[in-house]
Design a protein around this nucleic acid. Structure first.
Lengths: 212, 212, 212, 212
DNA sequence: AATGAATGAGTATTCATTCAT
DNA sequence: CATGAATGAATACTCATTCAT
C-alpha cells in the first residue's frame, strides 16, 4: 500500500500527509476525523481508503514515516564518535532543538502520539519505546564510563542527568503549548550547556572535570 | 449546580461520583460514556444532566472535587514545619504514595486526566499546573536554603532535584499506561529515599550531609 | 429489550414493525436499509437502536415475533385430534391458505427469510427448521399409520404426499410473485381436496379408501 | 459487448469468467465484489467495466453463458428418443447429476442463483423458469402418454411425479445451503431410481409396470 | 425531582462506476 | 486495449443532549 501512495505526485502526497498529521496531532487518534482529513487534503472519502485501508493503517504509516524522516534528519547532523557522554548528550539535544524548530508539525505529532491513550497509539508507543531504547543503548555502548566517579550509584547518576534534561525540554514545550510562543533557542542552548557543566562537576572524576 | 447536587442524599451522591470516576479513569474523557455512568450509578439519563449540564461540566466538577478531596487528605498528614527541603520532598512523596495506596481510584483518575489528550483534559491540566505551582511556591517560602552549597547555581540544583523525581514518577506512570499493571509503591519508596540521599551529598553543605 | 419496545404505544410499535417487515421482505437481510426503515416508520435513527441494539437483533426479534404470532393464529384454528394423516394435512393447508390471505406481509417476510442466503438468516433458518420439524413430528406422533398400505416404502409415500403439496403451494406463490395477483382460494381448496383424494386411493389400504 | 469480450485471447476470457463465477457462487449477487473479481482474474478494474458495463450485465452474461454451456453439455449426453416419461425423467436426472459431478463450479453458481434473493437474481430466475418450461414442454410433446393409467387425473399424476422429485432436490440443496456440505450424488441416484420405480407401480398401466 | 424516549449529526468504511492517461 | 486513481453516496451504528411526562 505504501507503493500505491508513493506513486502519487508529491504535492498531493504532502497535502494528505499534512492534513493527517495536523488532525492526529490536534485531536489524538480517537477524535481525529477521517472526514476532516479528506476535507483538508482536498480529496474524496474513498481515495483515503484506497491508499490506506483503515484509519489505523493511516496512523501507523504516518507514524513510521515520520519517525524514519526524523531519524534520517537527525543522523544527517549527528556525530556518533563522541565518547564523552555529557558532550554526546549536549550535541544530541542541540540537534533535537534545531529539528523541532525546523519541523514543528512533526514534533507536535510525536508529542501527541506519545501522550495518546488510544490503544492504537499505545501499540505504537510500545514499539517505539523499544526502538528508542535500543538506539540509546547502542549509542551508549561506546561511551567512556571511566570518566564517571565511582563512589556513587551509576544508574541514579544517569537517571539524574537524563531526567533533568528531559524534564527541562518537557517544561519548555509545555510553556509553548500554553503561551503559543516559540522556543528560545539561545536560552535553551545556554541552559543545556550550564546543566552539562554542572553534571560534569558533580559526576565526573576530578581529572575529567569533576569535583569542586 | 453544585448546590443542587449536594442536596442529594449522600449515598446517591457517592454512587454517581464513583460511577463517573471509574468511567473517566478507565476510558478517558472522550471514550467515557454517560450511558455507562448512569447505568452504573443506577440513575436515569435525565438526572445526570439535571445536575451537571454537560459531560464536560461533570468532568470538571469531578476533577475539582477530587483535587480538593486529595489536598484535604494530604494536608491532614503533612507537616509544613519541615525546613529541610529534601526531607520535605521526601515526606511529600511518601504521603503521596500512601494516599495512592488508600485511594487508588482517585489516583487512577488523576493519572488518567494527566495523560488524557482530550482538549477538555488539557484545559484542566493547565489550570491544575498553575494551582500546583502556587502551592509549591507557598511551601518553598519557608525552606532553609542555607543548607545548600553556595558554589553552584541554586535554580539548577532545584531543577535537577525536581526534574529527576518528576521524571522518575512520570516513567513509572508511563510503564503502567503501556503495560496496564499497577504502581510498585515499595520500589518507589526505596528509590525516593536513595535519590534524596544522593542529592544531599551532592547539593548540601558538608555540615548538613553534603560532600564526599 | 423487548420490554422497552412493548411499552411503546401500539400504533408506533406497529409502524416500526411494519416498516421493518416490509424492508426485510423486499430486500433481504443484507440489502435491507435501517435508513429506510426509520424513514418509513417515521422515527429517528437513534430510536431504532434504542430499542434494538443492532440490525441483527431487530431481524431476530421480528422473526421470532412473527413466528409466534403466526403459530398462535394457526393454533386458534387448528384441531389436533385428527388421526387420519390426509385429513390432517388437508386441514393444515386450508388454514395456512386462510392465514396467507389475511396476513400477506407476514408470509412475504417468511418466504423472504426462508430464501435468504445471508448468514444471519441462515442461523434463523436452522433454528426454525428444527422447530418446524419438532412441531411436525409431534403432530405426526398421533397419526394412525395403519391406514397406509404396507407393500410400499412408507418414507417415500410420505415424501410424495408432502413434496407434491409443498410444491403445489410453492408454485402458486411463485405465480403470485411474478404476476402480482392474488391467491385463488377456491381453486387451491379444490386442488388440495383432489390431491388428498388421489393420495388416499394410492396409499391407503382398500378398507380406508385405497385401491381402484 | 459480447463481441468485444470474445475477441480476447481465450485464456484471459476463462480467467475472468472463472473469477466471476466463483465470486458470485460464493457470496451471491449483492455481496460479490467486483474488486475481488478483478483481483482474482488478474485484470484491472477498468477492463471489467470496459467489457461488461455493469455488475448486473456481467452477472446476466455469466448466467446466460453458463446456461448455454450446460444445455450444450446436457444435449451431448441426452437421448431425446425415449418415449417412456419415467425413464426419460430418470435419464434426465442422472445426466444432471453427472454434470454436477463434472462441473461443480458451474452448478454451485446455478444453485446460488436459484437461491439468491437479490432482485437481479430474481429477474434471471423468472426468465429461466420460462425457458425451462418451454424446454420441458418440447420434450414432453413426444412422450407416450398411453403408458399412464386412465382412471386418474393425468395432470395431477404428472404434478405428483414432478413435485416429488423437484422437492427432493430442493431439500437436498437446502441442506447444503444451511450446513455448507456437498451433494451426496450416490444417494440422490439411488433415491431417484426408487421414486421412479414407485411411480411406475402407481401410475402406469399394469402392462407397463403398473399395479401391484 | 426524576424518568427514559427521542433526536440527529456524527463515526469509519465500502463499492460500483467513471475517466484521464 | 488497458490501467488504477478518483469519486461520493451509501452502510450500520453511537452518543451527548433535550424534553414531555
Amino acid at each position: 500500500m505504501n507503493e500505491k501512495f508513493f506513486k502519487l505526485d508529491s504535492e498531493k502526497q504532502e497535502r494528505i500527509l499534512n492534513a493527517a498529521l495536523n488532525e492526529f496531532a490536534s485531536f489524538g487518534y480517537d477524535k481525529a476525523s477521517t472526514n476532516n482529513i479528506v476535507k483538508n487534503a482536498g480529496i474524496s472519502k474513498g481515495l483515503l481508503f484506497h491508499y490506506f485501508n483503515s484509519k489505523k493503517e493511516l496512523y501507523y504509516f504516518l507514524y513510521n514515516y515520520s519517525v524514519d524522516y526524523a531519524i534520517e534528519k537527525f543522523n544527517g547532523e549527528m556525530d556518533y564518535q563522541e565518547k564523552d557522554l555529557l558532550l554526546f548528550l549536549e550535541k544530541t539535544l542541540f540537534i533535537k532543538i534545531q529539528l523541532m524548530r525546523k519541523y514543528p508539525n512533526l514534533f507536535n505529532f510525536f508529542i501527541s502520539c506519545y501522550m495518546d491513550t488510544a490503544k492504537e497509539a499505545k501499540e505504537l508507543n510500545i514499539m517505539n519505546d523499544a526502538r528508542a531504547l535500543e538506539l540509546k543503548n547502542n549509542a551508549y555502548k561506546h561511551m567512556d564510563y571511566t570518566l564517571f566517579r565511582e563512589d556513587m550509584d551509576f544508574a541514579r547518576m544517569m537517571a539524574t542527568i537524563e531526567g533533568t534534561l528531559e524534564q527541562f525540554s518537557t517544561n519548555e514545550m509545555r510553556k509553548l503549548q500554553i503561551t503559543g510562543g516559540e522556543l528560545d533557542l539561545d536560552y535553551m542552548y545556554n541552559e543545556i550547556t550550564a546543566y552539562t557543566a554542572m553534571f560534569r562537576r558533580l559526576f565526573y572524576k576530578p581529572e575529567h572535570g569533576g569535583g569542586k
